[in-house]
């Protein structure tokens, strides 16, 4: 397994929300994070103090490769509305996901 940094960004004023939508989104996102934790895929998270740059949330996740990380990133984008970037943190260069193993 390799580690990847997922960067969730949102441009200021990019989305209009309502109480109902916000509550739905929080519920859905909470459930998704819980699943990541349960599967041992969420290593850490960070929340910037100042989101002026548009960066809202950073996740450090474990995935079997770039492809798997991209799939998780896409799911995160769909649920949160973030623009998501994937940054390999270590040893993801070989990865398409299939048969990739952690190195010591």
């Amino acid at each position: 397994m390799s580690e990847f940094l997922l960067l969730g960004a949102r441009q200021p004023g990019s989305a209009e929300t309502s109480p109902r939508l916000a509550a739905n989104d929080i519920s859905a996102l909470t459930t998704w994070h819980q699943h990541l934790r349960r599967w041992g895929l969420l290593r850490a998270f960070a929340l910037p103090q100042d989101s002026a740059s548009g960066l809202r949330v950073c996740l450090v996740i474990r995935a079997s490769g770039q492809l798997a990380a991209s799939r998780l990133a896409e799911e995160w984008r769909r649920r949160s509305g973030y623009e998501v970037s994937v940054v390999p943190l270590c040893d993801a260069s070989q990865g398409t996901g299939e048969g990739h193993r952690d190195r010591p």
Binding site: R10, I26, L29, H33, L47, S51, R56
Partner: peptide, 8 residues
């Protein structure tokens, strides 16, 4: 939106 970032 900040709550949406943080609470989950």
């Amino acid at each position: 939106l900040t709550a949406l970032d943080r609470w989950p």
